[in-house]
């Protein structure tokens, strides 16, 4: 479980996060949603320690980030898997080398064991036979799957995905969503996903947090979305005609599952 309390962050006097608190539960796909510029990425990067917050407490299963030494932080990071918005694959390495990289840095596995694990994770993300290709030689959807494979190769306790569906076609996006959800359940990870993709929210959103202008505006699960009268949430989620229609139907039926 990851707990965030009263997180504040400003850049050049402009407040981006204004006292956000949230709990991300283990074994669930937790989603942070909001419009572009709402502070989602800053929030996620603050939790990851890539941005230093001005104020606030972040704890990983009771281990408080701000009170840890640099070495302790490095240890926690070995338990973290991240899928970046742009994939962040090492472009000078092959797919196999990319996935092997965390194992080479942090484990004493033999070359055969590493190879076996690479093939295992590639199979899990439905991507086989690309071991010797470079990231530039495969499609965006495949790169996303490789990024996911690299993120899970060391069985992370915490999995973070920043806009995992950006730039993907709807079908590939759903495949990626389901993969993340399956992996969350299989490895019992605390998964945090940053997204503004409504399909993802409806597909795998178990706990959803809406950010707006640096504040947490709403929190709940995907079934609650249809029955809330929060204007910010309704404005964000049901802005398209399709989702307005879906909302009407769900409200008529009285439940969403």
């Amino acid at each position: 479980m990851i707990e965030v309390k009263n997180l504040y962050k400003s850049f050049d006097g402009k407040a981006v996060l204004k006292g956000i608190s949230a709990v991300f539960e283990t074994g669930k796909t937790n989603m942070i949603i909001g419009r572009s510029g709402s502070g989602k990425t800053v929030f996620l990067k603050s939790i990851l320690g890539l941005i230093k917050p001005d104020k606030g407490i972040i704890s990983f299963d009771g281990r408080i980030w701000e009170q840890m030494s640099a070495e302790e932080k490095r240890q926690i990071r070995k338990e973290v898997g991240v899928v970046f918005q742009g994939n962040a694959l090492f472009d000078s390495m092959t797919i196999e080398e990319n996935i092997k990289f965390p194992m080479r840095m942090f484990t004493q596995l033999s070359p055969e064991e590493k190879k076996k694990r690479v093939n295992e994770v590639l199979e899990q993300v439905n991507l086989e036979g690309v071991n010797d290709k470079y990231p530039a030689e495969i499609s965006g959807g495949m790169q996303k799957r490789v990024a996911l494979a690299r993120a899970i190769v060391l069985y992370p306790k915490y999995l973070f995905c920043d806009e995992p569906n950006s730039g993907l076609d709807p079908k590939t996006a759903i495949i990626i969503d389901n993969l993340i959800h399956d992996l969350t359940i299989r490895y019992n990870t605390t998964t945090v996903i940053n997204t503004h993709d409504m399909n993802s929210i409806m597909e795998i959103g178990e706990k959803i947090i809406l950010l707006k202008d640096g504040h947490k505006q709403w929190e709940g699960d995907k079934s609650e979305i249809f029955f809330t009268d929060n204007p910010d949430l309704n404005d964000f989620v049901f802005s398209s005609a399709l989702f307005k229609k879906v909302k009407e139907l769900v409200q008529k039926e009285g439940h969403f599952d």
């Binding site: 490095r74 990071r77 970046f84 742009g86 962040a88 840095m105």
Partner: peptide, 14 residues
């Protein structure tokens, strides 16, 4: 700029 350095950092690599 392609977040590869961020990827190294979050893995715990100096």
């Amino acid at each position: 700029i392609t977040e590869q350095i961020d990827a190294l950092d979050v893995m715990g690599v100096n």
